[in-house]
Simulated assay, not measured.
Amino acid sequence: MHFFEQIAKNDVFIVGLIAWFIAQALKVIHSLITDKKLNLYRFVGSGGMPSSHSSLVMGLSTAVGIKSGWDSADYAIALSFALIIMYDASGVRRAVGKQAIILNKIIEDRHHHKPIGEQRLKELIGHTPVEVFAGALLGIIVANLLI
């Protein structure tokens, strides 16, 4: 059996992909409701509600727990990496987004005096704790529905 055929039959991986896909689709819907315009970039962009990173990793770790047991080494590894990714999404990446806002303001202010040739930095990078929690909950729900 070829690699891609094996991956397509890996239900744990499929759970993660489906959780990610649903989270990304929800970002488009959330943006449509809050901004009153269709922004398809939200489907591939990072940041926003819910966290697709959290959805994917909690979907994966929950599926591993269901299949391998909550006391298995596989689940411990999957959950540990999920927690690190979610911490990073709401901590480090969120701080980077806040720094980008400040730097963009500096660049904008500088442009009024003298062009500096810098492009705006991406500001929507990390997540609030609520966005991370919502994404994690989505991943858990998807895994419980599909496994």
Rank of each mutant, 00 (worst) to 15 (best):
A136F: 04
G126S: 03
K37Y: 07
S46F: 04
A73K: 11
A136W: 04
I107T: 15
A143F: 13
F21P: 00
A73G: 07
S61E: 02
M86F: 12
F43P: 04
A136K: 00
L32N: 02
S68L: 15
F13L: 10
S55D: 01
A78F: 00
R93G: 03
V28L: 01
I141F: 15
A23C: 06
A19W: 03
I101V: 12
L145W: 14
R120L: 11
F133M: 06
V57G: 03
D88G: 08
I7G: 09
I18Y: 03
A82R: 08
L121P: 07
I101E: 08
F21H: 00
I7Y: 13
T34F: 11
S31Q: 11
L103D: 05
A63N: 03
S61T: 10
A78I: 00
L79G: 09
S46T: 05
L124D: 09
G135H: 12
I140T: 14
I106K: 13
S72I: 04
T62Y: 05
H113L: 12
S54F: 03
A25K: 01
A82Y: 13
P50D: 04
L121I: 13
V57M: 04
A73Y: 10
L137G: 07
K67T: 14
M86Y: 11
F81M: 06
F4A: 13
R42I: 01
S61N: 06
A89G: 14
G48I: 11
A143E: 15
F3G: 02
V15D: 08
A134N: 01
G48V: 12
K114I: 07
K105M: 14
F133V: 14
F133A: 12
F13A: 12
I85G: 11
A134F: 04
E118G: 00
A82V: 11
A82D: 11
V28T: 01
L103I: 13
I29F: 10
P50W: 02
L79E: 05
W70V: 02
L26R: 14
L124N: 09
F43V: 11
S55I: 01
H30A: 08
R42D: 03
L146V: 12
G59F: 04
I106Q: 08
F43K: 10
F43I: 09
Y87V: 08
K98C: 00
S72H: 07
K9N: 15
G97N: 06
A23E: 08
K9M: 15
M58A: 03
F4M: 14
H2L: 04
D88W: 10
F13Q: 07
A23I: 09
I106R: 10
V132I: 05
G135S: 13
V130K: 00
K114T: 07
M1K: 01
V15F: 08
L103N: 00
